[in-house]
Design a protein around this nucleic acid. Structure first.
Lengths: 152, 152
DNA sequence: TGAATTCGTACTGCAGGAGTCCTATATTCC
DNA sequence: GGAATATAGGACTCCTGCAGTACGAATTCA
């Protein structure tokens, strides 16, 4: 189902960006996968997307790889999510691309979520993670797919 | 893709609940579908889920249907999302059901999202929608599927 | 009692996306 | 120049959300 969730792609991207932000230099997708424990195939795809966004610079060939070129303090969660999907920021909610009626409560929901995603910067998550102030009370989404369990 | 999105199920549920909260009486899924413009087949399934949550009471037979029995002020967005999926609230983030490492930034993200989802009550969305204070600046998720466009 | 209505459940099909894999291209080093 | 390495880009498979349909069970009403 996953009615609301961050999927693996977002998770992996966040992990990779956090890793790179704390380490200088060039990292190949293979090495990055080894260090972070993420599946290499998907990580490669994600890194390519991030490079296309201009957040990473890629170098081919021997000793090549990716290097972080953006300040995570300037990147919002919305930008990350947008970068990784077929998502477009919308300037006006009353456009007609929605197939089913965009009812008022739905619009209100959009606005809230937009605000939330915009306000959270990736650096916030990295720094918060470093502080390890992690009490219980988080959320876990359980997918039905055996190997896909955590959704965000 | 849909890395982060409310899917149709959540949207439809919200629309249906908002509709019922502003109208008293019993509504069959057929009538509700007619009034809201939602597909009857999926709406019927959603209503059943909501009934199983105890938010609606169902009556069979002629003049049967569903009736809202919960105060939307007491229902959070998290509860709605949870009710509609194979989602379990998690009491401790370090359980071992996650297949990939739950890195610190990821945990921080979970906490933020959990907080957001918990704080937004369904009544907030209904009331906000009624005020029609809807300036531009919302978000639109564009799926590739032709008839599926808006994701939340 | 029987007909009409409505929920409950199961089954099916389709489309799109997540995730994997394979090949082509670019770069470095010997 | 050739081998090794790494990104670039596509093609492919599988899963699942969405939707439709059909039949059975429960309830009302004539």
């Amino acid at each position: 189902m996953a009615t609301l969730s961050f999927c693996r792609t977002t998770d992996y991207a966040l992990i990779a960006l956090a890793f790179l932000s704390e380490r200088d230099g060039v990292w190949s997708s293979q090495k990055l996968a080894g260090e972070t424990g993420l599946p290499a195939s998907l990580l490669a795809k994600i890194l390519k997307s991030l490079q296309q966004q201009g957040w990473l610079v890629s170098t081919r060939g021997v000793n090549g790889g990716y290097r972080l070129t953006v300040d995570l303090n300037t990147v919002s969660l919305l930008q990350l999510v947008t970068a990784l999907e077929a998502v477009e920021p919308c300037t006006c909610p009353d456009d007609k691309t929605d197939e089913y009626p965009s009812s008022p409560p739905l619009v209100a929901l959009k606005r809230r979520l937009h605000k939330f995603l915009t306000e959270v910067k990736l650096s916030d998550l990295v720094l918060a993670g470093r502080r390890i102030d992690v009490p219980c009370g988080s959320v876990r989404f359980t997918a039905k797919r055996a190997a896909t369990v955590s959704k965000f």
